[in-house]
């Protein structure tokens, strides 16, 4: 399995197991204090950084001396990033141009985080999918 695909799988799983509980907690808990929301976000980001960091280190050791990426990896990454960018753009238009008129504070913040998380999940999901089913365009 290509290194980039392995990395995309790790990212995808990490994003799902961190941001799904994050947004579920926000939805279930209802009103949370600012400190609680900061703590929840910090914990989510910390777990994400630790898991990605460990996975990167393990993969770097395993693949020492081996070519990591080539034109196929770049092409797949560009295609997935292009789709993710559209999602992020829509999310940011919603968050930055529409929500300030009828929402405030933490709601806007969480909507922005949701946009970023969805865009990243789609990006890494697409990368894994394009490696699996192939791509000849």
């Amino acid at each position: 399995m290509p290194v980039k695909e392995q990395f995309a799988r790790v990212w995808l799983i990490t994003l799902l197991v961190t941001y799904l509980p994050y947004f579920l907690t926000l939805a279930i808990a209802g009103d949370m204090s600012a400190l609680q929301q900061i703590a929840l976000f910090a914990a989510t980001v910390t777990v994400q950084i630790v898991v990605i960091g460990i996975a990167s280190a393990v993969m770097a050791v395993r693949r020492k001396g081996e070519r990591v990426s080539d034109e196929r990896d770049l092409a797949i990454d560009q295609r997935a990033t292009r789709v993710a960018y559209q999602i992020l753009l829509c999310g940011m238009i919603l968050v930055g141009c529409l929500m300030p008129f009828n929402r405030s504070g933490w709601t806007i913040f969480h909507a922005a985080v949701l946009s970023i998380a969805v865009a990243e999940i789609v990006r890494h999901g697409l990368i894994v999918s394009l490696y699996r089913r192939g791509w000849d365009a």
Binding site: M1, P2, V3, E66, R67, V68, S69, D70, E71, R72, D73, R133, G134, W135, D136, A137
Partner: peptide, 26 residues
């Protein structure tokens, strides 16, 4: 072959399996 043309082994396998079309240069 991958080393000689600047591709990973996995990409050569993908080309052989028809899962990836290389660039004209490759």
């Amino acid at each position: 072959l991958g080393n000689q043309v600047g591709l990973t082994r996995q990409t050569i396998a993908a080309i052989e399996a028809g899962k990836y079309s290389p660039t004209l240069e490759t």
